[in-house]
Design a protein around this nucleic acid. Structure first.
Lengths: 144, 144
DNA sequence: ATAATAAAAGATAAATTTGTCTTTTATTTT
DNA sequence: AAAATAAAAGACAAATTTATCTTTTATTAT
């Protein structure tokens, strides 16, 4: 559904949120271990998240990544997906036609629209705070 | 959402269905031109569709591809997606975890399940006949 | 039977995504 | 100020997906 990069981005953001909620700043090594992702690749993804103001990065000793507590409920999955994968998941035609539109719809246009709208709504209404709470409570998991 | 291969597979199947409904057997060249796809790559995809009994292929002069009229309402999008992309779209975890399950869910498990079930239902209930009818009627389009 | 046609099969090649390694920059501690 | 730390940036490499080209096989028409 999403790219690997996007999957790691969501995992990382949730993990950073859990830690930030406990006032723990976390480093790359810790993150990639906890979310079970390749370290160097994860570094690149964290850079993108930082550039898109989804997470904060701090260099130097005791540096790492964190999310402002007050922002957590405002960061939703949609923002993360948009930052990493762009808007293809929303805009793109189900059959890959660039010219597909309401006026000139592909054969699956309407059928896909229903699913896509549902996905969009889900991504826009799911925030990082709620996801981190489930994880913190031990109801959900980020690794094997 | 789907791979390019899968997009071409769906396009091709719908186009072949429209033609088969008018008792026209169609060749690779015609198909790839009509659905705006790379010819050689499309050939590979048609082979897979044929192996999965979604379309019939006939070699030699006046050969080509066709779909039995009686099968058209039985072929749904789910079968095409399964034949080309496998069951990852159904089984796969939204965050890419192999161990993700109801018992050990990832943070987005339940949220994704709703969307995935909707997608699955749509793919399983949309058949090639209805899609080809819309195209035939000029309500939908397969190229620019 | 032979030639022509069209898909199947196999071998490659290009493009993209995923992943790694090295050097640079910013920050903190000593 | 110097050393240590940790992320940023850049160059590279591996893997996967997408796409192409050539040869083989099956079928039909002459």
């Amino acid at each position: 559904m999403f790219s690997k990069a996007c999957e790691y981005a969501i995992r990382a953001t949730i993990y950073i949120a859990v830690q930030s909620n406990q006032d723990n700043r976390v480093g790359l090594k810790d993150i990639s271990k906890e979310i079970d992702s390749p370290e160097a690749f994860t570094a690149k993804i964290l850079q993108q998240l930082s550039k898109n103001n989804i997470i904060n990065s701090i260099k130097g000793p005791n540096g790492g990544f964190e999310i402002d507590k007050k922002d957590m409920s405002k960061i939703n999955l949609s923002q993360i997906v948009m930052a990493i994968d762009g808007d293809t998941i929303y805009k793109g035609c189900g059959l890959g036609f660039k010219q597909c539109s309401e006026k000139q719809p592909c054969p699956v246009h309407d059928k896909f629209k229903v699913v896509r709208d549902e996905l969009k709504h889900m991504l826009e209404t799911t925030n990082v705070l709620e996801l981190s709470v489930g994880l913190k409570k031990g109801l959900t998991f980020l690794h094997r």
